[in-house]
Amino acid sequence: MASSPGVRVHPLMTARMKAMPAFYERPGGPKPLAMARGLGLHVPRSRWFWLPIPAFLLEHPEAGPVLVDTGLHEQVATDKSAALGRLGGLAFTIDMKPEWAVPHQLRARGVDPADVETIVMTHLHYDHASGLSHFPRATVHVDAREHADASAGRLMDGYMPRLLRTPGQRWETFSHDEEVVDLLGDGTIRLLRTPGHTSGHRSVALRLASGGDLLLTGDAAYNLPTIERSLTPLMTWKDDAFRASLARVQAWTAEHPGAPVIPGHDPETWATLAEVYA
C-alpha cells in the first residue's frame, strides 16, 4: 500500500520589524493600564528588538507549492508608506530588502510564483497579509470569522482591508466552529482552531515527507518561552481565548516530542531553523 504523502517546508523570512520590550509578556495589572505601560512609547527605539516576519513555502507532491502567510510586500522595502499607509509608515520600524519578498525567495528555490494556487492564512494582520497581491491567481483559505473581522478592520487592530481585494484572487472561508480543517483531505496540512491573538486565528500542523510532524504556531505563540512559560503577550484579542489556544499548542507539543515547533515571531528560534524540513 502506498504511503501517505507529506510536505517539504521552507521557512522564509520576509523582513524584520522592531517591537517594544514588553511585546512577548504584558506587564502586570489591569489590561488597559498594562497595555498603556507595555506599548513602550516612552522607550527609545534603540531599546526595542527585531522580530522576524515570516512566511512558509510548502511543497506538496500533488498540490504543488502552497504558501502559509505571505509576509510583507516587496514595496515595503522601497516605499513603506505607500505599502502600509502614512500611519503605518510612521509607526513601524522595518528592515527589508526587495529580494526578501516571497516571490524572489520562491524563484531562488526553483518555484515560479505564478504556480502558487493555494495560500493558507493563519490570520490577516498586515504583517502576514501584505504580500497577498503578489499572487493574483491564488485561492486564499482562511477562517470565516477572521475574514469578516479583517474586511471591516482598522490598522489599530492590525488589519488593512485593501489587502484582501486583489483582482482575480479567490477566497475560500471555512466555518469558525471547525476545530480542525484538513485542507487537502490527506492529513498533510491541518488548520487548528487557535483564536485569541485574533478572533479567527489558525495554527498549522504539517506532516512532513519523512513522516514526522511540524507545527507552525502562527501568532498563537510568538516565541518558544510563550509555550514553555505560558506567557500572555502584550496584545491579544481576548486573553481567555489566547490562553485556551496556547494550552492547545502546549498539548500538541507534548503529544509530538521532538517535532519542530516554529513560533510566529521568535528571532532566537529563527536563527536555528533548517533551510528546509522534509
Rank of each mutant, 00 (worst) to 15 (best):
A2Y: 08
A2P: 13
A2H: 11
S4W: 08
P5Y: 10
G6R: 02
G6K: 04
G6L: 07
R8L: 12
T14S: 09
T14D: 05
A15H: 05
R16A: 12
R16T: 09
A19I: 01
A19N: 06
A22W: 04
F23H: 01
Y24D: 01
P27N: 07
G29D: 09
P32E: 05
P32M: 04
A34M: 04
M35L: 15
A36C: 12
A36S: 14
G38T: 01
V43Q: 06
V43I: 13
R47N: 13
L51S: 00
I53V: 15
I53M: 08
L58G: 03
L58M: 09
H60V: 10
H60W: 00
G64R: 07
P65V: 03
G71M: 01
E74S: 08
E74M: 07
A77N: 01
A77D: 00
T78S: 09
K80W: 04
A82H: 12
A82M: 13
L84I: 12
G85H: 08
G88F: 03
G89K: 04
T93A: 11
T93C: 09
M96W: 01
W100R: 06
A101H: 02
R107F: 11
R107P: 09
A108Y: 11
A108Q: 15
V111M: 09
A114T: 10
A114W: 05
T118E: 11
I119K: 01
M121A: 10
T122S: 14
H125V: 12
G131Y: 03
L132H: 03
H134D: 06
R137E: 08
H141Q: 11
G153C: 05
L155C: 07
L155I: 12
G158C: 02
Y159E: 02
M160E: 08
M160D: 06
R165W: 13
R165Q: 15
R165Y: 11
R165V: 13
R165A: 14
T166W: 06
Q169M: 15
E172I: 13
E172K: 11
E172A: 14
D177Y: 10
D177W: 07
V180T: 14
V181S: 03
D186F: 02
G187A: 10
I189D: 00
I189C: 04
T194P: 09
S199A: 15
G200V: 00
G200N: 02
G200E: 02
H201W: 04
S203D: 05
S203W: 02
V204H: 02
A205R: 05
L206G: 01
R207Q: 10
S210P: 05
L215Q: 02
T217M: 04
T217W: 02
D219Q: 09
A221G: 06
N223R: 15
N223Y: 12
P225C: 14
T226W: 02
I227R: 04
R229E: 15
R229N: 12
L231M: 03
L231I: 01
T232A: 06
T236V: 14
W237T: 03
W237H: 09
K238W: 07
D239W: 06
D239M: 11
A241W: 13
F242G: 04
S245V: 12
S245C: 11
A247N: 08
A247M: 10
T253V: 15
H256V: 03
P257F: 04
G258F: 05
A259C: 08
A259I: 04
V261I: 11
I262Y: 00
P263C: 06
G264T: 00
H265L: 12
H265M: 13
P267H: 09
T269Y: 10
W270C: 08
T272S: 14
L273G: 08
E275M: 13
V276Q: 09
A278T: 07
